[in-house]
Simulated assay, not measured.
Amino acid sequence: METRAELRRRIRQQRSKLTAAQQTEATQQLVDLLLPELLKRQVQHIALYLSNDGELNTLPLIQALWQHNILVALPVLHPFSPGHLLFLHYHPDSPMTTNRYGIAEPRLDISQLVPLHKLDLILTPLVAFDKQGNRLGMGGGFYDRTLACSNAPAAMGIAHECQKVSALPVESWDIPLPEIATPDALYQFSTPNLHL
């Protein structure tokens, strides 16, 4: 089996080979698949992320959620607790900054904080996933730590179909996802998750 580092490298290379047209089509397919599902579930407060490194573009989904008056929160690197995330309300006029990984995030403003227990769902990025719902991230453990919190809401991964692998090497700290959305399907897994 490939190591986690090898898998990350291979899947990120695959993802980077998608053309602009393929990315645009995949993004629209994801919105068409996911938005009706989120509305059906009556999600009112959702955490998302801004795409980076060839990830599916989340901006059209965010804009669609805004049109339905759904509060969107984005992750921010916790300033005092390394390796942890905060979630801040994100709206069209949010002042933004760039974190140490080169990813845009809302400027820290405690009045915009959305506590974990107020979120209905966290949509997480990932590098790869398998048929058991295991998720391979970028290696920082930010989402695993967040999802391990007792007050964390349900989570769903977002990925291109090319990010699916048959099996991932799993570590004790990895938190599997009960659902992963791709432009082609909404995969549901029978993963043990205390927050569902």
Results as ranks from 00 to 15, higher is better:
Lys40Ala: 13
Pro82Asn: 02
Ala64Glu: 03
Leu123Glu: 07
Ile70Trp: 06
Glu55Phe: 10
Thr58Val: 03
Gly83Met: 04
Ala128Leu: 09
Ala64Leu: 06
Leu85His: 08
Leu33Val: 12
Leu119Tyr: 10
Ala104Gly: 00
Ile103Trp: 13
Leu39Ser: 07
Pro60Ile: 01
Glu55Asp: 08
Tyr101Thr: 06
Val114Phe: 09
Leu123Thr: 07
Asp53Thr: 06
Val31Phe: 09
Pro125Thr: 06
Pro75Val: 04
Asn99Tyr: 13
Val43Cys: 03
His68Cys: 08
Leu34Ser: 02
Val127Thr: 13
Ile103Gln: 12
Lys118Cys: 13
Thr27Phe: 11
Leu123Val: 15
Ala73Thr: 02
Leu123Tyr: 10
Leu126Arg: 03
Thr58Cys: 04
Leu126Asn: 08
Leu74Lys: 00
Val127Gly: 12
Ser111Asn: 13
Val31Ile: 10
Gly54Gln: 06
Val127Met: 08
Ile103Thr: 03
Gln67Val: 00
Val114Pro: 14
Leu108Cys: 05
Ser94Met: 08
Val43Met: 01
Thr24Arg: 15
His78Lys: 05
Arg41Met: 11
Ala26Lys: 10
Pro82Gly: 05
His89Pro: 01
Pro115Thr: 00
Tyr101Cys: 01
Leu38Ala: 02
Tyr101Ala: 10
Lys40Trp: 05
Ser51Asp: 14
Gln63Asn: 12
Val76Pro: 04
Ile70Asn: 02
Val72Ser: 05
Lys17Thr: 15
Phe129Trp: 13
His45Glu: 06
Lys40Gly: 02
Ile46Ala: 01
Gln112Asn: 13
Gln63Ser: 10
Ser81Val: 06
Ala21Gln: 15
Thr124Val: 12
Ala20His: 14
His117Asn: 14
Gln22Tyr: 10
Leu126Gln: 11
Ala104Pro: 07
Leu35Gln: 06
Gln14Val: 14
Asp93Gly: 01
Lys118Gly: 05
Leu119Ser: 00
Val76Glu: 01
His45Thr: 08
Arg15Ala: 11
Pro106Tyr: 12
Leu35Thr: 07
Gln42Ala: 11
Gly102Phe: 12
Gln23Gly: 10
Phe129Gln: 06
Leu18Met: 11
Pro79Phe: 09
Asn57Ala: 14
Ser51Met: 01
Glu25His: 13
Leu116Tyr: 11
Phe87Tyr: 15
Trp66Gln: 03
Leu108Asp: 10
Leu38Val: 02
Ile62His: 02
Pro92Cys: 01
Pro60Asp: 09
Leu108Trp: 10
Ala21Leu: 15
Ser81Arg: 15
Leu86Ser: 07
Pro79Ser: 02
Asp109Ser: 03
Pro60Tyr: 11
Ala128Thr: 07
Arg107Lys: 13
Lys40Phe: 05
Arg100Ala: 12
Val114Asp: 11
Leu48Val: 14
Leu61Gly: 04
Thr58Ser: 11
Thr98Leu: 08
Asp93Cys: 05
Ala128Met: 08
